[in-house]
Computed example of a mutant assay.
Amino acid sequence: MLYAVNKMDNFLQIIDLKYMESGHSYLEADSMHATIERARKHRKIYTTEEWALLIEMARKKPRPYNVDTLSHSDFYDLQTLASLIMINTKFNTKNEQVKWLKIKWLRFEKSKPFVIQYKYELSDDIFLELNVLQARKCKKNISWETVSLTQKYRKRLTISEKKKKDLLILLQKKVIPEAYKSYVQNIPSSKKAEDLVSWPTPSDEEEGN
Rank of each mutant, 00 (worst) to 15 (best):
D74P: 00
Y76P: 07
L171A: 11
P202N: 09
A179N: 13
S203G: 11
E56H: 13
L101D: 07
E194A: 09
D74W: 04
I159F: 01
F11I: 06
Y120T: 07
I87K: 07
L78V: 14
S73N: 10
N10I: 13
S160N: 08
W199H: 11
Y153E: 04
N10V: 08
V98W: 10
C138A: 12
M8I: 09
E207D: 11
E207S: 10
V98L: 04
I159M: 06
D68W: 13
I126G: 00
S148A: 15
G208W: 03
K137I: 04
H33M: 14
N95F: 08
K112I: 00
E56C: 10
I169C: 03
L81D: 05
C138Y: 06
D195Q: 04
W100K: 03
P188M: 09
S182Y: 11
L101C: 14
D9L: 14
E129I: 00
H24F: 15
E161T: 13
I45N: 02
Q172H: 03
I15V: 15
L2G: 04
L17H: 13
N186L: 11
C138I: 02
N141R: 15
K173L: 06
Q13M: 12
L106I: 05
E28M: 03
Y120R: 11
E129Q: 02
R38N: 15
D74V: 10
K61P: 00
S189C: 09
D166K: 07
R40P: 04
D166A: 11
A135G: 07
E178P: 00
E161N: 14
M20S: 08
T47L: 05
S190L: 08
V67G: 07
D9R: 12
P200T: 02
T146D: 07
E50I: 00
K152T: 08
S83Y: 08
E145V: 12
K140Y: 02
K181H: 12
A193P: 10
S73P: 01
R43V: 13
L70P: 00
S22I: 14
F11E: 09
L78E: 08
E56S: 06
L168A: 02
T93C: 06
E121Q: 14
D125L: 10
S198F: 10
F75Q: 12
K94L: 01
Q134N: 05
K165N: 01
F108V: 00
F11S: 12
F114H: 03
F114I: 12
A58K: 02
V175L: 05
Y153Q: 00
T69I: 15
I159W: 11
L81H: 02
E56K: 15
R43C: 13
F91W: 05
A39P: 04
L133C: 10
D16A: 05
T89K: 15
N6I: 06
T47E: 09
L106N: 07
L157K: 10
N88K: 07
F11G: 01
V5S: 04
V115M: 05
Y153V: 02
E205S: 11
R63K: 15
N6R: 05
Y26P: 01
E109I: 06
Y76S: 08
A82Y: 15
E145W: 00
E49H: 08
K61S: 07
A82G: 13
L53V: 13
D125T: 12
N131V: 06
M32L: 13
L157G: 08
K163G: 02
K18V: 04
Y65Q: 09
V132Y: 01
Y180P: 05
L70A: 13
